[in-house]
Design a binder for these strands. Structure first.
Lengths: 342, 342
DNA sequence: TTTTGATTTTGTAGCGCTACAATGGCAGAG
DNA sequence: CTCTGCCATTGTAGCGCTACAAAATCAAAA
């Protein structure tokens, strides 16, 4: 029975308590520890709260309890569909454990630091970051405050905790795959400039593995990360000039690989006969384009889930939690790297 | 001069005040209203705060002031690169106006409602949503709390405020563009099922405009939104069966258009000679694929900026703010729809 | 020197909620 | 009929900060 017409100021726990004829603590308990409140009382409080349109003020709750149910995730970009799956994994895991996930985008290290500062200011229960390269200031902040933090997409030297897979291992696996398909003159496309370690790890692994196969690891080209599809044609051009007999190409992303495929089309090169093309990241385009692109599937969803589980475990006080989780990867072999002779 | 070794409990405003020999209010003002504090004092407070590693607790600040510098954005997905630009626009505008933008992903209406509830629980200063179709419960919540909220990507019937462009106008412009290029048998691909109005607006506009041109508007196919690239081949197949002389195709996204291009490649159809293909959304792939795809460029970045500006204006108490902003669109004409006879 | 007015600083009183200890009520044991 | 033990419920205090008004400071004017 709502009395209509009365001034509807902000509905507070106090007002719900008064309307339900109980103390504020009972209202609080009804929402936070329902088992502490008798069924009958609980039902009535819930009813009154719903009628009044009460929404608990988590800001006040956080302040009073010193605890938060919010986890902040900093992500470098959302252009990459792998990150989409990563975020989905985090979202699902958070929902299942009763936490809220909020995101902040940060394209640069400086923005990452700002995002971390914001999240700390909001006193989140924990955070997830991408990569393990941060500004000193950011690392200090995290260490000093001791918030649970998981670095995803890396699997070494965690600030606190980390979850990821070995880009080096994936690179080796891809070289093995191409070698098994009979390729010999493999080219490698990397990224130039100040890029994340999940990219820089790859070239040394490529060179090492090529040597182990007795192959020449010198066919490398560094592309501009901002180029997207466009990096493909440029890189193919450069590498083909270096060695006209190049017969395989490892690309940093499926997007670049698709760019290479478009360029092959223009040149009239058939893939995989003339050139085998390998991508990275299991983007949607890799399975839709013709020929379909062989790729590294990084288990992004699983990684996201694990990241949140680690944060939650630490936030819940389980100090024994794992500091490092390897969620692995998978080489998805497709037409773009099929063996030359069937 | 930090006294080392002492128990470093959480650094609060109180402790900074004590260490700097001023009252807590002076510390508060130093950060919130620097001009109220004398230069000398301000400098000292800042110094001490930095030394102690003080990070203002915005949770407490929000509670005390009843105000927040956080804006929540609910986005339906991050797969679409237009949303990326939209988010970037929001991020930049928020940073410039001194607000913090946090994101929540919501693929479904139910998740959207949950996200809205979370943001309200966090007492954000305002929110942005995508689209104008929400659960009744969500609309109630927003109305009742009166938080400033902007619906983006739509330009009608705002809950509170809205920013977007007319998908119908863009559809008409695209039909005109194709007609001007000499196309007569145009096919339309839409999305089946319960999709957002920014999609459903298009078909009626297509049909109406086709009739105005004296053309047959019957060549329509509804695809599955989840199909991505894969929708292209399916739709082309269906429409070609309906009318073998189909000479143009309006796709719901550049992704679908790219899928159509792949399928044309398989069939040996040349684009645009045999079939003109138009996309939507100005995805990266549209300008990278060959031939480049004509598309609708929705000014997503601008839209994001405007959304935040509207929220901020309302949050700052300027009730006179605009309720509805049209950020327009642009038809980017490319090779995929070039006139048949040059 | 006293007064005035502007500027800078400081108490006071909460914001809405939750931890904790304490209360009240009520069953069954003595 | 009292006492113990247990549960449901309730005050009390305070989380860290800010709005507001009051107080202190100080230079210039009278």
């Amino acid at each position: 029975m709502t009395k209509c017409g009365e001034a509807t100021g902000p509905v507070t726990m106090q007002s719900v308590a008064k309307a339900a004829g109980v103390s504020p603590m009972t209202v609080s308990n009804t929402f936070k520890y329902p088992e502490r409140v008798q069924e009958e009382t609980r039902r009535r409080v819930r009813e009154v709260a719903a009628e009044l349109g009460y929404i608990p003020n988590h800001v006040a709750g956080n302040l009073a309890s010193g605890q938060s149910r919010v986890i902040g995730a900093v992500i470098p970009s959302i252009k990459n569909s792998s990150f989409y799956k990563y975020v989905r994994g985090m979202q699902d895991a958070a929902a299942e454990t009763g936490y809220e996930l909020v995101l902040k985008l940060a394209d640069t290290k400086r923005q990452e630091t700002a995002a971390i500062r914001t999240f700390i200011g909001l006193r989140v229960a924990g955070m997830t970051l991408v990569g393990n390269e941060h500004e000193d200031q950011a690392a200090d902040l995290l260490r000093k405050t001791g918030v649970p933090v998981v670095e995803a997409w890396v699997h070494r030297d965690p600030l606190d905790m980390a979850v990821g897979y070995s880009a080096a291992a994936a690179t080796r696996a891809m070289v093995d795959h191409l070698a098994a398909a009979g390729r010999r003159r493999m080219g490698f496309i990397g990224y130039a400039g100040d890029v994340a370690s999940r990219y820089t790890e790859r070239l040394p692994a490529f060179e090492e593995r090529m040597r182990q196969h007795g192959l020449d690891p010198g066919l490398c080209h560094l592309a501009d990360e901002a180029d997207g599809f466009g990096a493909g044609p440029k890189a193919l051009d450069a590498l083909h000039r270096m060695d006209g007999s190049i017969d395989a190409l490892l690309c940093p992303t499926d997007i670049v690989a698709a760019g290479v495929l478009f360029e092959c089309g223009r040149r009239g090169w058939s893939v995989p006969e003339r050139l085998a093309v390998a991508g990275w990241g299991d983007y949607e385009i890799a399975s839709e384009i013709s020929p379909q692109i062989t790729t590294v599937q990084p288990n992004a969803y699983e990684m996201g889930r694990t990241a949140i589980d680690m944060v939650v475990a630490r936030a819940a006080g389980l100090e024994s939690g794992t500091r490092l989780t390897d969620t692995g990867f998978e080489i998805i072999a497709r037409a773009s790297t099929a063996a030359g002779m069937e």
